[in-house]
């Protein structure tokens, strides 16, 4: 299982600091799965402490947890990784409430975690498919800001009128 110890060479550690001061020590290979951090590392080179004023510690932690899983799975044996990643992704998004989902999505977008944005936007889409407008509003706690006439017009356009 853990016999892949040949790879325990010097992996550089980065320190990520969230908006609320919480810090995370992460392997560079993990953190650079996030495009924004990858850019910072490449541009600023030796900087070991990276401040992320737009992400709170709770969500940064979750984003990094996702990155870690994917980084680990990808360094292990090559075949079957996709399956493992898919399974893990499913678990990751399964019980997210809308508030967490929102903040995670914003964090993933800010950090340019393209794959994670894909996963989370797919989750959002799955919560919309087949649902009624009222249900979508309820799920995402959205208040309609259409004018009353506009709302009626939209409703009318979405009726089937039979002969």
């Amino acid at each position: 299982m853990s016999s892949s110890s040949t790879t325990t060479t010097t992996t550089r550690l980065l320190m990520l600091k969230a908006s609320d001061g919480v810090t995370f020590e992460v392997e560079e290979a993990v953190a650079t799965k996030l495009g924004a951090i990858n850019n910072m590392v490449e541009e600023e080179g030796s900087e070991d402490l990276i401040c992320l004023p737009n992400v709170n510690g709770k969500f940064l932690g979750m984003v990094l947890e996702w990155c870690k899983k994917h980084a680990n799975n990808n360094t292990n044996s090559d075949k079957g990784n996709d399956e493992v990643n898919k399974w893990w992704d499913k678990e990751f998004v399964m019980d997210l409430d809308q508030n967490t989902l929102y903040h995670l999505l914003m964090a993933a977008d800010y950090l340019s975690g393209t794959e994670l944005v894909d996963l989370l936007t797919e989750k959002v889409a799955s919560m919309i498919r087949g649902k009624k407008v009222e249900e979508i509003r309820e799920t995402f706690k959205i208040k309609s800001d259409f004018l009353p006439g506009q709302e009626e017009e939209i409703r009318k356009k979405n009726s089937w009128a039979f002969e």
Partner: peptide, 13 residues
Amino acid sequence: FPKVINSFQFGVF
């Protein structure tokens, strides 16, 4: 059979 069906009433797949 109803003459008009407002599809917003239903979850539609």
